[in-house]
Nucleic acid binder design. Structure first.
Lengths: 151, 151
DNA sequence: ATTCTTATTGAAAATGGTTTTCATTATCAA
DNA sequence: TTGATAATGAAAACCATTTTCAATAAGAAT
């Protein structure tokens, strides 16, 4: 079996490799932003105008189920997606969200300490609550410099 | 000026104290759950059947703007709300979310260590990115024991 | 290569949480 | 008590996401 890791992942779960799926992966591989389904759709139709928004939603949903992308909700009323193992992105990172303009900054400050604590916490929680933990998110909410000046 | 802290908060921001706002606060004060707007609406009309769902949304939005409630998005397609300083709740806590049944557990394990790290991180981030940070969230996502058995 | 099974797709319609509109009502300062 | 205006409720609008369904395409079997 050859091809990139996400392709293996698809086949392992019994899914097929299709053109829309390739295109969506490529879009996510080539950005360091947090794209919404619509962002991805608008980009995708540049490559293949026949792709439907429905397919974008379905693909992102599938990808997040098999761990190829991670879905985020920063409270804007729309989901945003990041490719797992994106070569353009910091490896383990978290988010700083402006509650005003919704801009998002990835940060990695104190990640080592953070990971140590999270691993410990994760272990404690999974035993205490019999939870099988997959991942965690940390978000800081505040106001960015631009928005502070304007107000 | 007398009355509870959230009432002061309302007046400080120039808002009025109304019956729907009282009722919604009382609902939030008397639960340790994470209620959705609809949950609150259903409870509110027991006290006053004329309250509209619109008002519930508006009130929750107002309250989260002035810091009386905190709005959460656990990725279910609906927001959930917690009263700030809820006497029935653990003070500083975070969430453990079942990706399957969406049940939510509040946890406080290692909060002291966590707060220490978060304060340090917050300080670093606000300087580095000129962000004015208001609060942070930590979510663990996984599968609860019930859901693991069923699958 | 060709056929066959069935996963996948795209378009349109439906869904469902949340917002907006607007005329009416209620709060509270004067 | 009154006046200014903040707040409300009902209905309609909004908008991200899902569902439906008939057509298409991927890849296994032949």
């Amino acid at each position: 079996m050859r091809g990139p890791w996400w392709q293996k992942r698809l086949y392992d779960f019994g899914y097929r490799l299709t053109s829309p799926r390739q295109i969506i992966i490529n879009i996510l591989r080539n950005t360091d932003k947090h794209l919404s389904a619509e962002d991805i759709y608008i980009d995708a139709i540049k490559t293949n105008p026949s792709i439907g928004l429905t397919t974008v939603y379905r693909t992102l949903d599938l990808f997040s189920q098999i761990g190829v992308v991670q879905k985020f909700d920063f409270g804007e009323g729309r989901a945003r997606y990041e490719l797992t193992n994106n070569p353009l992105k910091k490896d383990h990172h978290h988010h700083l969200v402006c509650v005003n303009c919704k801009s998002i900054i990835d940060y990695t400050d104190f990640v080592n300490e953070e990971l140590e604590l999270m691993n410990k916490t994760e272990k404690a929680l999974s035993e205490k609550y019999q939870f099988n933990i997959f991942h965690h998110t940390i978000n800081f909410y505040g106001m960015c410099s631009k928005c502070r000046i304007k107000e």
